[in-house]
Design a protein around this nucleic acid. Structure first.
Lengths: 192, 192, 192, 192
DNA sequence: GATGAATGAGTGTTCATTCAT
DNA sequence: TATGAATGAACACTCATTCAT
């Protein structure tokens, strides 16, 4: 049972760095110190292994995302929290993050597939939270008047872009996070 | 000779949508309406085809980047131009863009390789321009005091994130561009 | 112990319908509601399971065959009894019958093997009985003059052919049996 | 192109002797003196190779069957011709015959499949011819009154049984054929 | 008796690539 | 230029079998 976890961990690392198609089951097995058939004992196949991993990763991601709810003293704090969450996620699990921000392999991209659904759900959830915050903030006068949908997309793009940079080579995360939050604050806040 | 171009065009589309490892030479040949050996007549192999494509794409990308130089009435206009350039690039060649913002296939990731070098060069160039602008702008009082390197990275991340969103599904580019530029303007400009 | 029998019964069904090579131990185990290693607890391996089954089936077959001996009012009745026996066998155990009339899997076809030996013994026994009957019948004037060996082979072929048809889809066995017996009677009997 | 035929010939031999599941593509390739991928260059896969072969074999079989039509001086001659045809087929192509009288591999047994369809067609055709002959013969008084359907099935079973025996080990075919025809003649003819 | 975990040896299949023409 | 035929190497996956428990 401990070896199943080793397979998963190894697969995450390899899928993240080489992509699904660039990773072979033999490579996963060898690097995990097991034999290939063991992968097939625990999973139906390479696709299933990938799907399982993406499910787990998105699972812990969504848990964090839901834990975000709760009262804040203003709307910007909500946005700040989303930044914090993603930077924390990259720091905690850099390889897993890459899987989340990467596209599914072509063969798993059909909308019926759970992988594609997870990715769609993530996007929808984030856009929902962001738009909600922006609308409320604009109404209360906390934010200056910005186009909500486009700005929500922009913030999402910014998060993805940063997270992606981060996954490749680890720099000083904290400075990056602070800079990004300040950047957005100056841009959004209506300084009377 | 026209068929060589067909091979290239087809390969760009497939590499962009399915990745390097997820695309087979047979698929490229079939979709291009030629036979596989013809690919090997025009290119040394699959790697060479990919390298050639990335070279071409980065070529036209760098041409645009160099065309950016020239006097501007202020520093923010330089930044604005960079946004415009990338949004235009996505619009003109959506598939090519994906190749630029995507990671190289694992096997071509070694720093000696021209693919990795192109990507590194792109990053260095953009960061260079951005940092230069930011420093000048801060010195002249056009921009408020921001950490230059982190902000340059942030802007690069934002551009990559947006461009990546754009490549997946085409929305109203113009609104997105305007929103992004305004967002950055508010954030950077020192409105005394 | 009851589970050993379940394994056997399931294996008979699957071997009969899919052949030895087309049946996996996992399939047998699953369909029998046990786990694979249990098969290996009760049998040395897949070959042994098959051999065991063929032994059992031929066992009960040979018992019936031996029970055939005994006085009859004429020679044709002996032949009639052989038909009856085989039709009864199909009716009682359709799957087992298929195993008997089918060829051994390639790997068990070597003449030293008990499977091949059983099949050879069956053939020899039946041919023996049939030739004996034919010779006696011809001598006594009950049968018309037919080449005994060829006719014995013919009758054996007929039986095998019918039994094989029967195993695939169950039709009205009784009519078939009667028709076959009448057919042979008309052909063999010397009607003065 | 000559090697494609070698593959086919080798595959026929091996499929006939070891069954579909008992034969590996590697074995076919090795025995045919080619490499495995060549099989996949000429055929979509193992299934396709088998299907192709069965199609070809049934093709030449059906051609002979259709060539059977034509005037005969009586109905029994028609039946005699069917016997002759099958004995000739075994003699000409013993391996191919085994494929025809054997059941499809389990995976190709679904009624939509062309293999299963060929086998069903063969059976239907033969039963059709035989029943037709029997009915006509009975009406004209050539044959004694036998149940037509059951007798047609019986004759089919006899043919299959003999052909099957023949494919395994070659004995004196001619004697067998003559014996079978005589056997049936005595049984069917109404000797007033 | 019974099983979960594990594997060596293969199985069908695909891939990038080559070569004679 | 272009291709039909061919292949070495690898790939995802399965199989019969084992072993510690």
């Amino acid at each position: 049972m401990i070896r199943k976890q080793t397979i998963i961990t190894t697969a995450i690392k390899l899928f993240a760095r080489q992509g699904f198609d660039g990773t072979t089951t033999l490579q996963i097995a060898t690097e995990a110190g097991v034999t290939e058939p063991l992968i097939y004992y625990h999973f139906k196949g390479k696709d299933d292994l990938f799907t399982h991993i993406l499910g787990e990763v998105f699972g812990s991601y969504f848990i964090r995302l839901e834990a975000l709810e709760g009262p804040t003293k203003n709307e910007f704090e909500k946005i700040e929290r989303i930044f914090a969450l993603h930077f924390q996620f990259v720091e905690d699990m850099p390889d897993e993050t890459l899987l989340i921000v990467s596209a599914c392999p072509a063969k798993l991209r059909d909308p019926e597939n759970i992988c594609a659904q997870n990715i769609a759900r993530q996007r929808k959830l984030l856009i929902g939270i962001l738009m909600n915050s922006l609308q409320t903030g604009i109404r209360t006068g906390e934010f200056c008047k910005v186009p909500t949908e486009a700005t929500a997309n922009l913030l999402l793009g910014l998060i993805n872009g940063l997270v992606r940079q981060r996954s490749f080579k680890m720099e000083t995360l904290e400075e990056m996070r602070a800079t990004a939050v300040d950047f957005c604050r100056r841009s959004l806040l209506a300084t009377a």
